[in-house]
Design a protein around this nucleic acid. Sequence first.
DNA 1: TTTGAGCGG
Length: 267
Amino acid sequence: MDEDGDLDFLLPPEQVIGPGENGLKTVIEYKFNDEGSKLASARLNKRAIERRSWPKFGDAANEDAGGRLTMVSTEEILMERPRAPGTKADESKAAGDSLSQLSKGGAVLMVCRTCHKKGDHWTSKCPYKDLAAPADVFTDKPPTAETSTVSAAPGTGKAAYVPPSMRAGADRSAGGSDMSRRNDENSVRVTNLSEDTREPDLMELFHPFGAVTRVYVAIDQKTGVSRGFGFVNFVSREDAQRAINKLNGYSYDNLILKVEWATPRPT
DNA sequence: TTTGAGCGG
């Protein structure tokens, strides 16, 4: 109830004096004022006295006049859910928004930061995302003729920075000097797993060959059962190669494992 | 049978 009550624990406790013979009770309470200093105030709860004479109602109707002042209600209160299925769908249609857009979290909020198109796709799904960085990023690093390829961000007319790895003729082969890219290349695909092989099993099987950054087992979302293949990522390409050499054709859970380099999934 | 999931604003 108290908006800025987070420091109230620093204050002295409330004091209640009385009720005296006039039936009045004195309450001394402490508060911070706007400048943050401590204040004490006293109030007389005359109104509480007055409330005692009010007629009782509801569950308290049978209580004595001088009995409990408050009751815990057992009444059920049903909350309205404006977005509950089937309640407002018709209105949404009437408003002209397609349901598919609504299900993506609201058409208005979905504005691509790369091409600035509204309601069509997220930034990560932008068809131009490999072509141009978001127009409002890298403004402190204007592209220069020697170090970058300049292309136009569609619809903006602005030149956009293209990172070296994205430029035409960039070396995308494995094991180069490009550290950020190399990690993806150390991904090993494992197939012909038994269906009760899980990620900890893969970790146990592969980590003796070197540092493993990630293991993954494909799980059927409907049945929860393994789809029989997975991926293991190694820090070092050499370790991954040794694991392939040793574990490809290895008998595991009565099945012959197939272990080979994974090629990046098409996006 | 067999090349991963879904978030995010």
